[in-house]
């Protein structure tokens, strides 16, 4: 009799322990990168964009006014803020405390869809990349790793749970393009060819220079731009599509942003927290 009671108590305790574990794990589940389960992965495409900033509340009005984005705390991880354009999740904002309070560390981290995160990480490490986080399975989100490539540019490698977002047309206010600013273009295209299976293609630009398109099959998913600015370190820069470049620049500056660079169709802006992103008016040859 005593043994039976003891067994029931143990089983109940085990159940309680197990349920507690489930609740805490549920808190770690993040919003998927795709609003619908596609079960399709667009390998080589950048499928998610996270802003790491020390002040998530301060930057939301900036992006809301500039692009019409709205923000909602992730229902399972309140510290993670999901960015929506309409009903479509397009990115996230993560509280990231500065290690050095004197230096702003806000940055946009882009997530590259790969077939196998672990294999991609191995290929990156073999080419002198540094692994900063993971690889780890994040419930709802997928398997992820944060790496710093051989030149120092950070990005996320992801195999999204449930698949990537549909590869459909891009509306104003959505992410349009991603460029790698690199000081060694040849080294960069070799690196990402090994990590993500890209085939490079050199394309002349209007200013008698060239850009390397990183392609998979018939699609170009990103560009490699020769970094000629001594003060800028290699980095991945995401671009938002806009309808009116002048108007967007003007509004960004009124909202506390800083225009860093611009061309006829492209501009690079720092948000009020120091996170840097691009805007691009037309899809053009780089889409």
């Amino acid at each position: 009799m005593h043994n039976r009671i003891a067994s029931i108590v143990i089983i109940l305790a085990a159940g309680a322990f197990g349920l507690t574990g489930c609740v805490s794990e549920k808190a770690a589940r993040l919003t998927p990168v795709s609003a619908t389960k596609t079960e399709v992965h667009h390998l080589g495409k950048f499928v998610w964009f996270d802003l790491l900033t020390e002040d998530p509340q301060a930057v939301q009005p900036f992006y809301k006014e500039l692009f019409g984005w709205r923000f909602a705390a992730d229902k399972n991880a309140p510290e993670y803020i999901v960015i929506y354009l309409g009903d479509k999740p397009i990115g996230g904002i993560v509280t990231h405390e500065n290690k050095d309070p004197e230096i702003p560390e806000s940055m946009w981290l882009v997530s590259l869809s790969v077939a196998d995160v672990d294999l991609a990480v191995s290929a990156a490490k073999a080419r002198k990349a540094e692994v900063l986080d993971g690889p780890t399975d994040i419930k709802g989100r997928g398997r992820m790793a944060v790496i710093r490539d051989a030149e120092g540019a950070e990005l996320v490698l992801i195999r999204a749970a449930g698949g990537d977002p549909p590869d459909a047309g891009v509306k104003a206010g959505e992410w349009l393009w991603v460029d790698l600013f690199s000081k060694d273009v040849q080294k960069a295209q070799d690196f990402y060819g090994a990590v993500a299976g890209y085939t490079p293609q050199s394309v002349p630009t209007a200013d008698e220079d060239f850009i390397i398109l990183l392609r998979r099959g018939s699609r170009a998913y990103a560009g490699v731009v020769k970094l000629k600015l001594d003060d800028v370190e290699p980095n991945w820069l995401p671009y938002v599509k806009v309808d009116d470049l002048e108007d967007t620049i003007s509004r960004a500056e009124k909202l506390g942003g800083i225009l860093l660079l611009r061309t006829e169709n492209v501009a690079i802006i720092a948000d009020p927290s120091g996170g840097v992103f691009g805007i691009q008016m037309t899809e053009g040859a780089r889409s």
Binding site: T95, P234, L260
Partner: peptide
């Protein structure tokens, strides 16, 4: 799941 916010590493400052 890991039970934590994912981005834990120190990523330095952005390239700009």
């Amino acid at each position: 799941g890991g039970g934590r916010t994912y981005y834990q590493g120190h990523y330095g400052y952005n390239g700009w």
